[in-house]
Amino acid sequence: MALTHPHTTISWREPDKLPLRGTLIVLPGRGETPHVYERFGRRLAADSYRVHAVTAPSDDADRTREQVLGLLAEADPSTPRVLVGSDAGAAYAAYLTALPADTANLANGTVAGLVLAGLPANARTTTGGDSAPGWNDELDLRTACGTHRTKISEAGVRPGDLFGDLPAEWLDPGVPQRITVPLLGIHGANDEVSPVDAARRWYAGAPRAELVTITEGRHDALNDQTHRTVAATVVLFLERLRLGGELAPIATAEQQYSTTAPPVGHDV
């Protein structure tokens, strides 16, 4: 299988004759190539969202920014344009969106929302250093999905890069406060690379953030064994975003009680 060059943009398009519902730009994580997001891209494209995966910002942040700005400029402005980041890609997507308009060129409604998965809450990775795990241990930290383990092993993901430190400015404490667009966070409850408690504190600082934790989920939240549930969660967010920035609910779950039995947890 021919490997995708890490600086090549890959795209998955909506089905023919179906109207475009929005554009997603995926920023990969440390050591990853765009090809890693094929399964995610195909699934979201099937729901009529055009998906592009760009260079990992931990490889070349300037190139990533150039690709993102180019794709945003080309995207249909009548539908939402959303940045989706995983790991370092999540940190960089948030950082770009928080920059002043005259610096990042992402203001004036260009980016309608963010989806951040496995956000590193600290610039320094606690699992790294001289005792960085071997490849099999790294796979365990990334995912419990056998298919995804095979995918990242075949797609040119570089062992050990996951434990490299990130630029401190990407995770400046003021970043979440400066993000004004709606934000969906997806985080594995068992993420040992970026523990969920630290991530919760980061999202608590964003004015319009929703955080979804994935039971028993690991670091590669978009591609873990619960990837179908995660993709559905992303689609629900996108569909609400299409209705406007207030994210009005579309479907509301209601608790139904039996007329013959008391609610669970209530005294008889």
Rank of each mutant, 00 (worst) to 15 (best):
A2S: 09
A2Q: 01
T4F: 04
H5C: 00
P6H: 13
T8R: 06
T9D: 07
S11W: 08
R13L: 11
E14Y: 08
R21H: 09
R21E: 01
V26S: 02
R30W: 08
G31R: 04
T33G: 15
R39D: 15
R39Y: 10
R43Y: 12
H52Y: 01
T55W: 11
A61I: 05
D62F: 04
D62A: 05
S78K: 10
P80T: 12
L83S: 11
D87G: 10
Y92N: 00
A101Y: 00
G109I: 11
G109Y: 12
V111W: 01
G113W: 13
R124P: 02
G128F: 09
A132I: 10
G134Y: 04
L139C: 03
C145F: 06
H148E: 13
D161K: 09
P167T: 06
P167K: 03
L171F: 09
D172Y: 03
Q177L: 13
V181H: 01
L184N: 07
I186H: 03
N190T: 12
A198P: 07
A198G: 15
A199M: 08
Y203L: 15
A204G: 15
R208W: 07
R218N: 07
H219W: 12
D220Q: 02
D220L: 08
A221D: 09
L222R: 05
Q225H: 14
T226Y: 02
V235Y: 02
L241C: 14
R242F: 02
E246S: 10
I250N: 01
A251G: 08
Q256L: 03
T259D: 04
